[in-house]
C-alpha cells in the first residue's frame, strides 16, 4: 500500500538530493578564485558542475512530481545502522585499544541485531578472526597495527 500512496518518492527524493548537493557545491566553490574562462581558477569547474547538477536535480524533481515514477525502496535500517556503527567502533578502538579489542568489538556490534546472535558463537568467531588478522595482516603483509595499543598494554602491566 505504501508504494501506492507515494508512487513518486524515488524521483522526488533523488531530485531533492541532487539539487541540494549541486547547490551546496556551487555555493562552496564561490569561496575559491573563479578566474576567467581562459585562465580558470580553482572555483570555476566545481561551480559549473554544481550548477549542472542542481539543474538536473530540479529536472528529476519536476519529473517526479509530474508523473508516477518508481517507488522508493525501504532500506533495512537496523542492519544499515548496525554495520555503520561497527565500522565506527573499529575505527575508534583500533588506535586506542589495539586490534585484539577492535576486532571483537566489531564482530559483537555487527552481530547483536542478528537473530543468529549468541555470545559463544560471537566470541569464537572473534577469537578466530583476531588470530587470522594477526597471521595474515601483521605477520604476512606487515601492516603496522598493534595487537594491544601501547597505553593499554602499559595499563595492564605488560
Amino acid at each position: 500500500m505504501d508504494a501506492k500512496l507515494n508512487p513518486r518518492r524515488a524521483d522526488v527524493e533523488s531530485g531533492l538530493f541532487f539539487a541540494g548537493f549541486g547547490a551546496l557545491t556551487a555555493a562552496l566553490s564561490l569561496k575559491y578564485d573563479l578566474g576567467s574562462f581562459a585562465m580558470m581558477g580553482p572555483g570555476m569547474f566545481p561551480l559549473l558542475l554544481g550548477l549542472c547538477l542542481s539543474a538536473l536535480g530540479l529536472a528529476i524533481l519536476t519529473r517526479g512530481l509530474l508523473r508516477a515514477g518508481d517507488a522508493a525502496r525501504a532500506v533495512p535500517l537496523v542492519p544499515a545502522l548496525g554495520l555503520t556503527l561497527s565500522l565506527i567502533v573499529f575505527a575508534v578502538l583500533v588506535r586506542c585499544a589495539g586490534l585484539a579489542i577492535a576486532v571483537p568489538a566489531l564482530v559483537v556490534t555487527v552481530l547483536i541485531p542478528s537473530p543468529d546472535f549468541a555470545l559463544r558463537r560471537a566470541a569464537l568467531l572473534a577469537v578466530l578472526l583476531v588470530v587470522f588478522c594477526y597471521l595474515v595482516f601483521v605477520l604476512g603483509l606487515g601492516v603496522s597495527l598493534p595487537m594491544l595499543s601501547p597505553p593499554l598494554s602499559r595499563w595492564i602491566g605488560w
Partner: peptide, 9 residues
C-alpha cells in the same frame, strides 16, 4: 563479520 574485518584492516 569476516568480510567487515578484512575490509576495515
Amino acid at each position: 563479520p569476516v568480510i567487515l574485518t578484512v575490509c576495515c584492516v
